[in-house]
Design a protein around this nucleic acid. Structure first.
Lengths: 355, 355
DNA sequence: TTGAAAGCGATACCAT
DNA sequence: ATGGTATCGCTTTCAA
């Protein structure tokens, strides 16, 4: 194990200069004569010197790292989130620490611990208590991702409610459906809570009786299968199932098909997210497109800005637009442009619903 | 922004002791009188002092952090991997840095950069070149996850080939199927490569003609849909499609069903991984169970061991067992124990195939 | 243009 | 039992 990491001092000795000059050369700061710079660079190249990050961090009193805190669920949504965040951070030469709270109550300690190792913290909405968020915000820049933080804490989220209201109205008005059930746990995350609110709002706007209580399940595909079984056991079957996200919708679709139901003839199903599979299943899923990757990237960008500029971005709230994507699972005729990749990524059809 | 992080020196002043004593108290090392300890602890509590991690790292010449490098794909597999790794690392009070290479060729620089910020590096098989791995291994402990590293580099992986051979034999012998196609890109990752090898090995063992070239697609569900379309356009249809993982298998299932094929009557489909959805689709997916979370946890454990003990674990290779899980998509009768959760997690039926 | 030296925050050795 | 101090690796004044 070649642990012979060499230090600036050694490079300095080898190049016959002082450590200060080595620092200047390796950072491109200050004035160094061409001749000296060449000598130092030579030594650096030859021995593969790279400044030790901890030394730099200590001197600069900054970590060049940001943290991402999330509950730790599976699925395309979280993978996209992590990747969007990571790629933006790497662009700014900051490294990314991750922490999965697993929704344990005692995760606060770990988060505080992490706060001591990074310059800024992105926290997924619904992961931490308001108090913990407040405490963190007192220590370092914090941005809430997909949710609203307490006052004074910045957030980046999407416009969940408006699109969900539009989607629900589409079902209630254009398809004249009644008896819609909502699948998802509103107390599980701000996203779901807002979607549930948008769902009810549509009923309210149209003067229709408010929907039944939501079917409170998780956000993964198996949860959707489970939800379908619950719904289909009920005495009064719904005409449509509005799901909190695409994954559960895909699960509901599997469950409903497994029970011999025809979608959308016997049952209408809608999702939220527009994951790649949404366009590829049969029938293709009517859903709401939200820019997950962009959401995460904007969060990283804002966080890095707050961390480096030491700017006071307190309470800035960025809301990204969402867009209803009408496909076949709501009862609309299948789109003519059946190229799955095109349809999947940039739907032509759709109530354009930019927020 | 209460950036008034206080230092050991300030606590020392407040408690009327030296920094050395503060260090002793906060670490529980050395001898401190009960009275002094109480005074120091009081000051620490009152001001919420926590030793600055960078200072500690510099003094201890260690980061208490490990890195995880992976290509950055979506899906349950990667989420499980990250979570398994993270939870084990957190248990050992090490934080986790992640790096998604996005399979870019120039990611080497970023990996080397990361190597300077952590005590050890876990690299997903197929993510980095042998040369880069060698270079890294010369700098710090490295463990290859789901793949074999170059000589001298430890690895943790599963027994891909044996189970894939067993599964393929099940199709060829027990179901007397011929004309099997393989979906997956063997040059994409060591996992797929080994599964492809196991697939061919079964043919060889039985003296059957070797299978057609694999349908080289990615590992995500949409790739499976795409693969299905490719296969179904061919003049000679296969009797069965053996997929490199469950996600593509689920995609193939969607694609095949969309084209009106009945699985398993018209076409047999198998997967690999035993993700939760595998047991829940109709027909339930015959697959191979691999302990992804455990794989990641063992990797973290080994890595932390190498990093802390400074042990020479060069070339230790841990291979976790896999297990064929027979369900309905291969043509076997649907399992009697139809409780999806039970069937999904701990299948009763199955050619037990521990490596 | 360059070097000497003072930190940055914590640890650990060596005195006392 | 406690305190002074060198040290970790780097950056950044301040002088020369």
């Amino acid at each position: 194990m070649g642990n012979g990491r060499l230090t600036a001092r050694e490079i300095a000795r080898l190049a016959g200069v002082s450590v200060a000059t080595v620092s200047r050369v390796s950072n491109g700061t200050g004035q160094v004569s061409e001749e000296t710079r060449r000598r130092v660079l030579e030594a650096i190249e030859e021995h593969g010197y790279r400044p030790h990050h901890v030394g730099q961090a200590l001197a600069a009193r900054r970590h060049s790292a940001v943290g991402l805190v999330f509950p730790g669920l599976s699925g395309p949504y979280f993978s996209e989130l992590i990747q969007g965040f990571e790629s933006e951070a790497v662009n700014s030469r900051a490294s990314v620490h991750i922490l999965c709270t697993h929704l344990r109550a005692d995760s606060d300690t770990e988060v505080i611990e992490m706060a001591h190792r990074v310059d800024g913290l992105a926290v997924l909405g619904g992961t931490l208590s308001e108090e913990t968020l407040q405490e963190l915000a007192g220590m370092l820049p914090v941005v809430v991702l997909a949710g609203e933080g307490p006052p004074g804490v910045s957030s980046v989220r999407v416009d969940n409610a408006a699109s969900m209201t539009a989607l629900t109205r589409h079902l209630l008005v254009d398809h004249a459906l009644r008896r819609l059930d909502f699948v998802g746990n509103p107390s599980g995350s701000p996203d779901v809570s807002e979607r549930w609110a948008g769902f009810r709002e549509a009923h309210r706007q149209l003067g229709l009786p408010l929907p039944r209580a939501p079917i409170r399940v998780g956000l993964q595909q198996p949860d959707g299968v489970f939800a379908a079984e619950q719904v289909l056991r009920r005495s009064i079957l719904p005409q449509g199932i509005v799901c909190a996200n695409d994954e559960t919708a895909l699960g509901v679709l599997v469950g409903a098909s497994g029970h011999g139901l025809r979608v959308p003839k016997d049952l209408v199903i809608t999702g939220f997210d527009d994951v790649p599979m949404a366009a590829l299943v049969t029938p293709a899923l009517t859903t709401v497109r939200q820019p997950v990757r962009e959401l995460a990237a904007q969060t990283a960008r804002l966080l890095l800005h707050l961390a480096t500029e030491n700017a006071d971005g307190s309470g800035s709230a960025l809301v990204l637009p969402t867009e209803v994507v009408v496909r076949a699972s709501c009862g609309c005729p299948a789109s003519s442009t059946s190229d799955p990749t095109t349809t999947g990524r940039r739907p032509r059809a759709g109530l354009h619903q930019a927020g």
